[in-house]
Design a protein around this nucleic acid. Structure first.
Lengths: 334, 334
DNA sequence: TTGTAAGCGTTATCAG
DNA sequence: CTGATAACGCTTACAA
């Protein structure tokens, strides 16, 4: 690998001059500039990002910690963030925090030792204070899907309450008044917020809130199965179901199907992951603008890294996607 | 941020000694070692990975270029590779090549300027010679899903021929003898190899190969739709369908469904992506051991980076996953 | 066992 | 406009 020294020698100038033409145009004579460029070409010279980072204390790198490197949710976030970041001539480095506090801490340390110019975090276990402290200590943070008091400027999150409201309202409009809510654990504030939206819609339609129709369990297929089974065991009347995410919905559908109830039950999921539309009947879902979240995260991180970039809002709006699983109640009135 | 100098000063030793205790135990007296460790703790010292990399010319970083940062195929590969790599104290850096030669080149340059100790590549457009040259020039390469003559030691790929064979054989066993093949473009060697497997199975069962039942188009939903539509337009007799991947299968199902043929047609996809089992009827598919591929890639890359790691094989074996979409032909004989 | 000093490839300060 | 030269934080002969 050719270094700046080789270029300097070949061009017959000093390293300083080479460095100057490298870093955008400062005051360098045209002749010098040309000689340097020529030499660079001849040697196939590429500056070492490493050495530049050491000297400038800026790495042109943005870190990202996700809770799952695979999966339909984080994929699009990473993808859109990476596009924005690479377009700015920066590099995105992604690592997995596995959604557990200790792994997340490890992942974050990995990043800060690197170091990165800004850090995009989607962490669940990692404590709020540490996040804020990290930021204070000089690693600019963009926090996704989490909303810390007094740290709002660094957060990007979905209006979950509105999502819960939209889904529930639509089912109410269709005539349902016994709507079960199969939520994720209420330790996740998303779940709580979605519940609030659910309640707001009920109130608006004068339908009483029934605690016995609300369940919480893991945010995955098995959680959905268990909650749905519980619901059936209770023999509570219900004609519709709002699920905390699409995986829960899939688990629930499985149980409903086994009981011959799949096609009669109105259902709305959350996130609108790619395969929701492939299901049969296709699954209605509250669309989570993941790509937009990724883009915004990218822009915000770049801005924090001292790069001028679009300024973006902090709260994303969900949208109800209507598909076959949204249907009126079986007409008992007739 | 505390530096090695601060630690040295506080511990009352030289930088060299600190460096020694940092890099595993060399000959350092117990007292010195203790003082240094104490000082490190007191200062919360973390060595700068950057400076270390510059000094040693090794970054403890493995790069990976994928053709899609989201999507059900690369997610699990990245995830399992990352686990292996991080367990070894290395960092995985992922970037997107978008499956286009120029973007891939850019992505690879980004990586080599960083630099990385090894590079895992899943690139399609990038020319073979350049890959081999890159490796010769000192960036160790692990190449996924591609098989270059004379470069086998660096490649990890699926036995596609066997995959095509397994799928076709099972359908033949069920009694189908008009099996359409909706392949991806034959410019992808995967497609060609799968076709060969398809033909081998046919030959084994004495069923003649019919060119008019073979189609090629994009490896996605729309490609599947177009190929299926063409097949129907031709009014060729067929009772089963082998699809080049699961997305093609989904597109084809859509068209079949519109024609009331979904439940009568036997179908096998390829890759066995996560949602194949969620479909209704659930989709049989040739399982592609993506996680294993990621793990092997990780181990191989580590080994090339001079880290001792498990040695792994180069060819992965597919497996047929049987689900509802696998069914005997409608009995015309009766 | 320990310290000194050169070097990794760049940037940045300061004279000239 | 240009060139020495000192950083940046660490490793690594070489000497002591």
């Amino acid at each position: 690998m050719a270094t700046i020294k080789d270029v300097a020698k070949l061009a017959g100038v000093s390293k300083a001059t080479v460095s100057r033409v490298l870093n955008g145009n400062e005051r360098v004579s045209q002749v010098a500039r040309d000689k340097v460029k020529q030499a660079m070409n001849d040697l196939g010279y590429k500056p070492s990002a490493l050495a530049q980072a050491l000297a400038t204390n800026r790495s042109r790198t943005i870190g990202m910690v996700v809770s799952d490197l695979s999966g339909p949710f984080f994929g699009p976030i990473m993808k859109s963030a990476e596009r924005v970041i690479r377009d700015a001539g920066f590099q995105l480095v992604v690592t997995n925090g596995h959604g557990q506090a200790d792994r997340e801490r490890e992942a974050i340390e990995f990043m800060t030792n690197r170091p990165v110019d800004a850090l995009i975090l989607t962490v669940f276990g990692f404590p709020e204070e540490e996040i804020v402290e990290l930021h204070r200590n000089g690693t600019p943070i963009v926090l996704l899907n989490r909303h810390i008091q007094g740290f709002e400027d660094n957060c990007i999150y979905l209006d979950n309450e509105q999502g819960g409201y939209l889904a529930t309202k639509r089912m109410l409009e269709l005539g349902h008044n016994r709507i079960a809510f199969l939520a994720g654990h209420f330790t996740h504030h998303d779940s709580v917020e979605r519940l609030e939206g659910y309640q707001r819609a009920l109130a608006e339609f004068g339908v009483p809130f029934r605690q016995e129709l609300v369940f919480d369990d893991d945010y995955n297929e098995d959680g959905g199965r268990r909650m749905c089974q519980k619901l059936l065991n209770l023999k509570r009347e219900f004609s519709a179901m709002f699920c905390g995410n699409d995986l829960i919905a899939i688990g629930a559908r499985d149980i409903l199907n086994q009981n011959g109830l799949l096609h009669g039950t109105c259902m709305v999921g959350f996130d609108d992951v790619t395969f929701a539309r492939y299901l049969n009947p296709s699954l209605s879902s509250v669309f989570f603008p993941v790509e937009e979240m990724g883009e915004r995260a990218g822009h915000m991180a770049l801005a924090m890294a001292g790069q001028r970039s679009e300024s973006v809002g902090h709260i994303l709006q969900p949208k109800l996607i209507e598909r076959q699983s949204l249907c009126p109640p079986a007409s008992k009135a007739d």
